[in-house]
Design a protein around this nucleic acid. Sequence first.
DNA 1: GCACAAATGAAAATGATTTTCATTTCCATA
DNA 2: TATGGAAATGAAAATCATTTTCATTTGTGC
Lengths: 121, 121
Amino acid sequence: MSRSNPRVVSVLERAGGFASAQEVYRLMQREGESIGLTTVYRSLQSLVNDKIVDVLRREDGEAIYRLCGGAHHHHLVCKGCGETIEIEGGAIEKWAKTMAEEFGFRDVGHTAEIFGLCPKC
Amino acid sequence: MSRSNPRVVSVLERAGGFASAQEVYRLMQREGESIGLTTVYRSLQSLVNDKIVDVLRREDGEAIYRLCGGAHHHHLVCKGCGETIEIEGGAIEKWAKTMAEEFGFRDVGHTAEIFGLCPKC
DNA sequence: GCACAAATGAAAATGATTTTCATTTCCATA
DNA sequence: TATGGAAATGAAAATCATTTTCATTTGTGC
Ligand SMILES: [Zn+2]
Ligand SMILES: [Zn+2]
Ligand SMILES: [Zn+2]
Ligand SMILES: [Zn+2]
């Protein structure tokens, strides 16, 4: 059932930072790899499910993907140039845990992102 | 040149939290207000430019808008039944501010959500 | 080879957002 | 009040990422 595609992973590796599904597709085409856009979308979804890939949104709403080091972390993203910094979320982890307990929630996860303009922009 | 539309502002006020352009449009229609979808989009854009309105993205990428200054809060969402609880984010606010300062980011916003299974599920 | 499940991808469908463009509303001035 | 132009409006078409459909191909065990 795992549709995680090693060829897509390889492209993300070479791409370095974030890339959209469309970009991954174009890259593979340019390099002469034969793949369908649908498969790119499915592979990326699968990689996200398997937590091998992070997904965020560009300001225009397009989804962008990136290989994610296993460690849990959060992001500080520049709205101008897209630069992304991985940051510690110690305070968040505690907050999420506290809130979940207070309301009796189990099996809890969370998301947290900060976005603004970096010094260069 | 200001296309900020007081009728759209009024809808956002009544809506309380976040609403997408499509939702604002549907709401106005339901209330018998005559307005075009294009104008809704233009008004919301204008309100964002004038910093009267905040814009975020839903998980599916749809843009959602909210009056600035409406009380800022976060959500605790049940993955099972969808129940949503509005929660305080004091710790987050501080965390976001600290991190942004540390890396010299300006004009900063953030998102934070907790999701899990509520006591009933 | 055979059967059958999973993977693939082309093409169509979807849905939010933007663009076009003709029409209408405002507003200042004669 | 009439008039001319600028700004606002909205219906319809265009755009574009993403999802769905569905027929075909591939892989795997027998
Ligand atoms: Zn930047
Ligand atoms: Zn965290
Ligand atoms: Zn529940
Ligand atoms: Zn907050």
